[in-house]
Amino acid sequence: MHQNLLKYKHYRYLKLFLVLAVASIALYFSQGEDQPANGGTLQGYILGITSAFFILLLTFLGIRKRSYSSNMGTVEGWTSAHVFLGTSLLLITTLHAAFQVGWNVHTLAYILMLAVIFSGFFGLFAYMHYPRILSSNNNGTSQDQWFDDLQEIDEKIKNLAISCRTGVRLMVLSAIENTQLDSTLFKQLRGKDGSKIRLQSGSKQLVTNKNQEIIIDILSTAIPNSQKQAEASALNEILTLFSRRQRLLKIIRRTLQVKAYLKAWLIFHIPITIALLAALIVHILVVFIYW
């Protein structure tokens, strides 16, 4: 019942893509001997106009996606068409240019288009690949719930820490305080754990506590050294909680990273599309002015 966007309506747009591919190749080779293949032949014009029209159509997805009560197809259909028509542009525009490149505004438009299309390919890869990872990583729990769990664990640890000796207590608190979950998209993409810990109370220096490993080491060595039984059992519980915390943080960090992947490519894809539109207009004007 669920159908991914490539398979939409029994591969409707894949079929369209194949027809387009065959038709444009045929059109390319129909260019006569007397006028070599070029953007300026009749066939070249047809390919060029088709490309320009497709680019506008593909850009229109951004508007269709936000026209929420529109009856013009579904967004999934539009996205499916977007992918296949976008891919077909690789072929159609190349044939339009008849494999000619140079240091000029025409090739600039072509290169920008390639950048848009290949960033789109990454987006498609992300859309096909990452949701599955997100689903198995989250395992039925929402991001908000993960954060709630984390907060609950932190509260428990803070309460337990009261019955520990000062040095350990301060380290535990500093490990919690200096746990880092990234808020900017770029850092989320990198997924690096910048968590830190203060080993000496009063010292300004923080050392890395990547993956909560340092604090877990400290806790496990502190348990045999504890003088009171109450402290030993509290430390033991804290250790268990930190192990759970370690796992939680891993999951959250991965969730943030995957979500960032799902978003980040658009930051590239869309501005370049705007640049492409500008270059396209220049390309068309220039062709007509210098005819």
Binding site: Q3, Y68, S69, T74, V75, E76, T79, P131
Partner: peptide
């Protein structure tokens, strides 16, 4: 609208 606005068919 929720179904028609889903870009991936999810």
């Amino acid at each position: 609208a929720c179904v028609r606005a889903c870009p991936t068919g999810a």
